[in-house]
Amino acid sequence: MFAQLIAQSFSMDDATWKRHANPWCFWTRLSVLPLLFLAAWSRVWLGWGALVLVAIALFWMWLNARIFPVPKSTHNWVSKGVFGERVWINRQQVPIPSHHRHVPQFLTVFSAIGMVMVIWGLYTLELTITIMGTVLIYIGKLWFFDRMVWLYEDMKTATPDYHSWLY
């Protein structure tokens, strides 16, 4: 599963997931895509040096989930969305309700269409296409995240582990 692969590639253990549930982590993480896109665009001025900026943006994405403290309370939209992502990733082990199965997959495809537009826009240096693709990615991501809040609300009593995340 793609979501599990992503979580594993970023070494998302329990401690990291707890920090990732901090609202500051979520809102600052939204800066990663513009930083990556700016890094890709900067190839015009920096040539291969733009890869340094790409590395910095990727490092920021990895570091972001680790630098913020565990939130004092998880009774907020962001924390519940992060918990919903964990539930989504774990859906093979703990089945989720059928009404939660298809929309997140649709939204992933929706965001992927935006990513194709961004890649094309960055390749051709077409700012309008790049911005339109970025907007699609963010709409898909934020809508997906909102669905993860709903998923967590429906699943928070499914296991003692899920329930323990809320405090």
Score class of each variant (00 low, 15 high):
Val54Met: 11
Ala3Pro: 13
Arg29Ile: 01
Phe68Gly: 06
Trp48Cys: 03
Ile137Ser: 06
Ala65His: 15
Ile113Phe: 15
Phe68Met: 08
Thr130Ile: 04
Phe37Met: 12
Val32Glu: 06
Phe10Ala: 08
Trp120His: 11
Tyr162Ile: 01
Trp48Tyr: 11
Leu30Arg: 12
Ile129Glu: 12
Lys80Gln: 15
Gln92Lys: 13
Leu58Ala: 06
Ile119Gln: 05
Gly49Ser: 04
Ala7Lys: 12
Trp41Tyr: 14
Phe37Pro: 02
Thr108Gly: 12
Thr124Tyr: 11
Ala21Glu: 01
Ile89Ser: 06
Ala3Asn: 13
Thr128Gly: 06
His163Asp: 09
Met12Tyr: 08
Met12Asp: 09
Val109Ile: 14
Ile67Lys: 06
Asp161Ala: 06
Thr16Asp: 05
Ile129Gln: 14
Lys156Gly: 00
Phe2Cys: 05
Leu30Glu: 12
Thr28Pro: 00
Ile137Lys: 14
Trp48Pro: 08
Met117Glu: 08
Pro23Gln: 01
Tyr123Gly: 11
Thr128Ser: 11
Phe10Met: 14
Ala57Cys: 06
Ala57Met: 07
Pro104Gly: 04
Thr128Gln: 11
Val116Asn: 09
Trp24Cys: 05
Leu38Phe: 14
Leu46Tyr: 12
Asp14Ala: 08
Gly84Cys: 03
Gln8Phe: 09
Thr128Met: 10
Leu63Ala: 12
Trp17Cys: 02
Asp154His: 07
Trp120Cys: 08
Tyr123Met: 09
Trp41Thr: 03
Thr124Gly: 01
Arg147Pro: 03
Gly49Cys: 05
Leu58Cys: 10
Ile113His: 12
Thr128Tyr: 10
Pro160Ser: 02
Asp13Leu: 03
Ile6Gln: 11
Asn76Arg: 01
Thr130Gln: 05
Phe145Gln: 03
Pro104Glu: 02
Phe68Glu: 07
